[in-house]
């Protein structure tokens, strides 16, 4: 559940994401992404709003020289996207000023995705990247010993320019993506349970299908009706040896 992330990191400062902690989804929900210009891997230019218009957009942040989570994250996203239904675009934005369109093409080829599958790789100007970072909680820091950027893995689900869902971490579960895409199509959960061990939930929200599934609590809800019917049947079966009672009409009629 989306709030697991929140509760697992209880006690951390809530205001701004400190380096070394991933951003918390609940803090950035419904934030509007700035409409920044992007340079795409094929050398063309596009604005972010063009990519997010008409279809949901999945956004993630990478740099091509990453020896850490960038490639595994992209592969995980690719796997989840292959299982998900419906039209959407994917945008991987590089935050490394050294990256060129050619670097990005190489990364796309390395991961095995192409633009016609809805994948876009792009470079944002450093100032624009800062504006994006501000509304998403994404951060990156140059670590001179490892000669790598330190950064969290992050996937945003953007609908009509606003952050609908967000997931931090090195992998993207297919269930998360499915649930988020269902939400963009209007299958919105009106409510969601908080994590915690609770006995007999009535309706368990199933993120894999986006549906509420029956749980043992629902069985308990059907029990009273069932017991009443069974008791009635038992009582009436016992009464089979019926005693004829003579009517006492004179008793009631005034």
């Amino acid at each position: 559940m989306r709030t697991c992330v929140v509760l697992l990191i209880l006690g951390l400062p809530m205001a701004l994401p400190a380096p070394d902690s991933p951003p918390i989804e609940d803090q950035y929900l419904y934030q509007a992404l700035p409409d920044v210009p992007l340079k795409l891997s094929d050398g063309s230019e596009a604005r972010l709003s063009q990519l997010s218009s008409g279809k949901p957009l999945l956004v993630t942040f990478v740099f091509t020289r990453c020896a850490g989570i960038c490639s595994p994250l992209l592969r995980s996203l690719k796997g989840a996207a292959a299982k998900a239904e419906g039209g959407f675009r994917i945008l991987a934005i590089s935050f490394d000023p050294r990256d060129t369109p050619a670097d990005l093409s190489a990364l796309a080829a390395h991961v095995g995705v192409a633009q016609k599958q809805g994948w876009n790789f792009a470079i944002a100007a450093p100032a624009d990247m800062q504006r994006i970072a501000k509304v998403t909680g994404f951060w990156f820091q140059w670590d001179s010993t490892s000669r790598q950027y330190d950064h969290p893995g992050l996937v945003l689900v953007v609908d009509r320019g606003r952050i609908l869902r967000m997931r931090a971490g090195g992998t993207v579960p297919a269930a998360f993506l499915q649930e988020a895409l269902e939400e963009t199509r209007g299958k919105l959960a009106k409510s969601y349970p908080l994590p915690g061990k609770v006995a007999f939930r009535c309706f368990q929200y199933d993120p894999a299908t986006g549906e509420l599934a029956f749980d043992w609590g629902a069985v308990l809800m059907l029990l009273p009706g069932g017991v009443a019917i069974v008791l009635a049947v038992v009582v009436f079966r016992r009464g089979r040896t019926r005693v004829r009672i003579s009517m006492k009409n004179s008793l009631m009629w005034p």
Partner: peptide, 16 residues
């Protein structure tokens, strides 16, 4: 013994 679900209890309470 149990941590009971508030939604289940509400359903049962109003069924009663």
């Amino acid at each position: 013994w149990l941590n009971v679900d508030a939604l289940l209890m509400k359903n049962l309470t109003f069924l009663f």
